[in-house]
Each structure stands twice: as C-alpha cells, then as structure tokens.
C-alpha cells in the first residue's frame, strides 16, 4: 500500500498520472511469467506420467514450499537466516503431536502447525529486527539450535533422538486415504504448494512486497519514503514462518514420522542452497531449486552414498565464485532471447 499512500501526498496535477504509472508498474511486475504456465501443468501431469516417482516428487514439493518461504525472508526482506529450519521443525513436530494426541485429519493438523509456527515466527521476528547480518545470522542459528536441543532433550514429548512415531493420519478431509504409492500424498502436497505459492505471489508482488524490497536495498531510504520497516519485516517473517511450518507438517504427514533431523543445521543450509540454485527474489526460484537440488542429491547419493555432502559443498563454492546472480538469471534470459528473436520489445 505504501506506493499508493505516497501518491496521495504527491502534487495534485501529477497525482492521477503517477498513480496510473504505479499501477502499470505493479501490474507488469505481477504478470504471469511464461514458466508458470509450464511448471504447474507439468506438476499435475506428473501424477499420471510418473506414478512410480511419487515419493521423490512429494519431497520436491515439500522442499519447494520450504524454499519459497525462505525466499520471502531472504529474497524479498533481505534477512540472511541460518535457522529457517526452526519453523520447518516446529511445524513437523506440531503436526506429529497433533495427529498423535488429538485429531488425525491432515488439513486440520496442517493449519494447526502453521499457526504454531507462525506464533514462533512472530515472537522471534523481534529478535531479528536489530543488528547486522552477523547478529541476525547468529540469532536465527541460535534459535534453531535451541529448538533442536529441546527436541532432543524433551524425550517424553518428542521421542528424543529416536524421533516421534506411532501415529497414523486419517484420510485428507475425511475423503482421500494416503495410499501406499504416495499418489494422494503428492496431490495433497502439490495442492498446498500451489495455494501457498499463489498467496505468497500475491503478497510478494503487491506494494507490500515492493516495500520489502525497498527495505532490503536501502533501509534508510525506505524509512524516508515512509515505509514502516519494522512492521513490514515482522509481517513478512511471520508469514514465512507459517509457510515453513506448513512444509514441515507436510513432511510429517506424508512420512508419518518426525526425527530430530528436521531441526538440524544442514537443513537450513540445504534450503539456502536450493534458493541459490534457483535464484532469489522471484519465488519460483525455490521451486526450480528444489527440483534441481533433489534430483542432484538423489543422483549423488546413488553415485557416492556417503560423500554426497562434499559435492554439494563444492557446488556451493563454485556457485558463489562464478556469481550466483549470473546463474540465476537464466530464467529471465530465455524469454528475453525469445522476444528478441521475434523482434518484440523485451
């Protein structure tokens, strides 16, 4: 809304014109890109074309959701977080405990996990408002480590190092049973991913998202044009926490198991890598990155079962040295080439 409110105080004679221009800009930013027409139909087609790959597709959908939520924090709000898995983990445990003790219907569990994770996100968002990148990094990392330790120690609640098991989930919405091949599980995850990504897209390409980007690139200037930085960051962080909680809950519900691994450091690093592979700041980076990362990891764990971590690390180093911006821009590059070839304006 900040753009519009700024227009209200602009001189009257230019007001109309500026407003129209702002609207045009916003519309251009939020227009549907060509790859969106490809990715969603492809994901739906996979249900029928790749029935034997349902489990890995489910994994991709969950990771994609997790990465999209981090993109809101990192790509839009510019907060470098090393502990984003805190929300993933709390969502996973909440969904597990809810299914075990209260109610086995997955969608309810998903929403509960999102709410709990959102509350944690809201509470901890005040800790990341202050300080430099390093402070934020350590605060987020510290919170994730604390939660990991808590999950480990509170064995009576979480099952400790053995993980939480011994619960089964009811049919989705009381209609669709989780089947052995994971088909319904995949459809469920895909539906959640689609809805959440659309909501995130609406948020990210709204004036709100623009304000976040303004805060990211220059907090002082953003404050000068009247962007309430603190409130924007708190809201963005909370929304991202809810989404990450959803992702964690989906993992729990599709596997019927929660291990303390959901809170481990390498998950936070993995999701960063996913975003880096896919590119930050346009949401779909999370989805492309998740596809690339999962396929790569799957392939590597076949080639070198024990040492795939080395190659992931090497990939990170190379990505940074080559310049991740250059790699991530490929998705913009293709349509530019296309329009250029057709002689149109980019």
């Amino acid at each position: 809304m900040s753009v519009i409110t700024r227009e209200d105080v602009a001189p009257v004679e230019d007001g109309q014109d500026d407003q129209a221009r702002a609207m045009r800009l916003m519309r251009r930013r939020s227009r549907i890109r060509f790859f969106e027409f490809i990715i969603w139909p492809a994901a739906v087609a996979a249900i029928f074309l790749l029935p034997s790959k349902m489990l890995i597709l489910t994994e991709i959908a969950i990771l994609a959701l997790f990465a999209v939520s981090l993109d809101l924090v990192l790509g839009f709000a510019g907060i470098v977080s090393l502990g984003h898995t805190a929300f993933f983990g709390i969502g996973a445990y909440t969904a597990g405990l809810f299914a075990r003790h209260y109610f086995a219907e997955p969608v309810t569990g998903l929403l509960v996990a999102g709410v709990v994770s959102g509350i944690l996100g809201f509470a901890t968002s005040f800790l990341i408002l202050r300080g430099s990148d390093l402070t934020r990094l350590m605060t987020t990392l510290g919170i994730a480590l604390m939660l990991g330790e808590a999950a480990n120690q509170m064995g009576w609640l979480t099952g400790g190092a053995d993980g939480l098991s011994g619960f089964s989930l009811g049919p989705i919405l009381g209609l669709f049973e989780f089947d052995l091949w994971g088909r319904n599980g995949y459809i469920y995850c895909l539906a959640v991913l689609f809805v959440t990504t659309m909501v995130a897209r609406r948020i990210a390409f709204s004036p709100f998202g623009l304000a976040l980007k303004a805060i990211k690139s220059n907090p002082t200037r953003a404050a000068l044009v009247g962007v309430p930085a603190r409130r924007r960051l708190v809201i963005a962080y909370t929304i991202a926490a809810v989404m990450a909680g959803f992702a964690g809950a989906l993992l729990t519900q599709t596997t019927s198991f929660v291990s303390p691994d959901v809170l481990a450091f390498h998950r936070s690093a993995d999701v960063l890598l996913i975003l880096v592979i896919g590119g930050t700041g346009y949401l779909y980076g999370g989805i492309f990155g998740a596809i690339g990362f999962t396929l790569l990891k799957d392939w590597l764990s076949v080639v070198t079962p024990q040492y795939w971590m080395f190659w992931i690390g090497l990939l990170l180093v190379i990505l940074v040295l080559v310049g991740r911006g250059r790699i991530a821009r490929w998705i913009e590059y293709i349509p530019q080439r296309l329009t250029a070839a057709m002689g149109g304006k980019p």
Partner: peptide, 14 residues
C-alpha cells in the same frame, strides 16, 4: 555464508 558453508561441507565429507 554460502561459500564458507560449502567449504564446511567439503571439509566434513573429505
């Protein structure tokens, strides 16, 4: 951060 995390992963696996 990404670069050094990558180095950590490499060193752990190595």
């Amino acid at each position: 951060v990404l670069f050094s995390v990558g180095l950590v992963f490499m060193s752990v696996a190595a």
